[in-house]
Computed example of a mutant assay.
Amino acid sequence: MQNELIAKVPPSDTIAQSTTLPCYKETGGLGLFQLKRMWHKVQLQKQGCADKKIIENEWSLDVMIMDTLGLGLTPTIESIFASDSFFEFENWVKKVHGRAISNAKRNQLNKSIVSFFEETDIKNEAASVETPRYSILTPLQWQSWDDNGYVIIPALVPKKLCEDVCNMLYERLKMDKNNPASWYSCHALKQGVMVQIFNDITMQVIRSLPQVRDVFEQLWGRKNLTVSTDRLSFNPPQTESWQFPGPNLHWDINFNKPLTFATQGLLYLTDVTAEQGAFSCVPGFHKKIDNWLANLPKNTNPHSFNFDKCHSTPLAAKAGSLIVWRHTLPHGSCPNKGDTPRIVQYINMTPLSK
């Protein structure tokens, strides 16, 4: 994902003068570790002399920092590329964060960064898991997780909170939820069905709900997960003049690294029927993927595989339902053949790992 994003952003005319990365403890005005190193890595990428292994190894750390600060992955990458100096990038971070970074948050974030590089806590963290406050997942949901690789938790988030996000989206995109003609208007924040809104207060409220965290902690079997700062999706009904642009079935996996357990998730903000552009996936593929990869012809890119013949299942659910799936499931959206838009908020949680 990071390489795809980087390829889309034109390089700046001003590049870093040194090919040596600063120490992760070198800070700027915000006093945050790793931030300067993040900026410098991108400058080396502009020059074509970045160490790809370092970038890959530190990617999960950099994403954790973006998520913790509520920056969003895509906006941060674009800002780093657009900033001709670290001072400029740091000012962008300050502006997007929107308020002073507390000493407690700074200290905790810096502690996590030190742990990542010195490996003091990361490897042993899973051994010190606390028991969740209460069990959200039912035996049937656990069965679905094991057999199908996904789970649907209905009515997890109050409908009013979902409506708040939807109303914010319509307002920001200057659309009228009661006027279908307005759903197809162009807007800078719309990219296909993706909406580049990452950290509105209405979205933050949902991310901070304890029941949402409990689901991910139970699936991961551990605490200390970082919630993602991700975007929204708006998939209106297909018309003669507007056809569903994708994404169709795909993976968000770096196949250059060994496959390990990971989750992805989204929250339905509206009621979604199977034909209404529902989230779709290939159930049970997590049990087949190792053999499938082993039998691919040599030098075949798994991302280029045509999934047209795979049986995918659209998952219908009511507003407030959280869907979490194993990242080894091919997944995507589908054309909306209903009468109203499908709106979702992407939510995931991950531990910091190397």
Rank of each mutant, 00 (worst) to 15 (best):
Q238S: 14
S85D: 15
I15M: 10
D51I: 01
N178Q: 12
N336Q: 07
S60D: 14
S135Q: 14
A155E: 03
A274M: 02
S60H: 15
A16W: 05
G31D: 14
G72N: 09
K25C: 05
K53M: 06
L293Q: 06
T20D: 12
R207W: 06
K257M: 14
I77P: 00
K287V: 00
L352K: 06
G338S: 13
M194K: 13
S208V: 01
C162N: 10
Q238A: 02
V129M: 00
A274W: 08
G332I: 01
S312A: 05
L266S: 06
I6K: 08
V212M: 04
Q141A: 09
F87C: 05
Q2N: 09
K177Q: 11
L32P: 15
L293C: 05
L61T: 09
L137Q: 15
A155H: 12
L30T: 07
H286F: 01
D308S: 12
E58H: 09
P351W: 01
L61K: 10
D290G: 08
D176N: 12
L173H: 10
F234T: 07
T260K: 07
N256H: 08
Y346N: 10
D271L: 02
V42H: 05
L209E: 10
F305P: 00
V195E: 08
Y134L: 09
H40V: 03
T74L: 04
E130C: 02
T20Q: 11
I347H: 05
I201T: 13
I323Y: 03
S208A: 13
R207E: 12
T19M: 04
K190G: 02
F81T: 00
I347F: 05
G192Q: 05
A181D: 15
H187A: 03
N124D: 02
Q345P: 00
L249T: 01
G338P: 10
C166Y: 10
K8I: 07
V165G: 06
K257A: 12
Q45N: 08
Y134C: 02
S233Y: 12
F285C: 03
L266P: 09
F307K: 00
P245L: 01
I54S: 15
E118A: 00
G320K: 02
E4Y: 08
L71K: 11
P236G: 07
N248Y: 08
V282C: 11
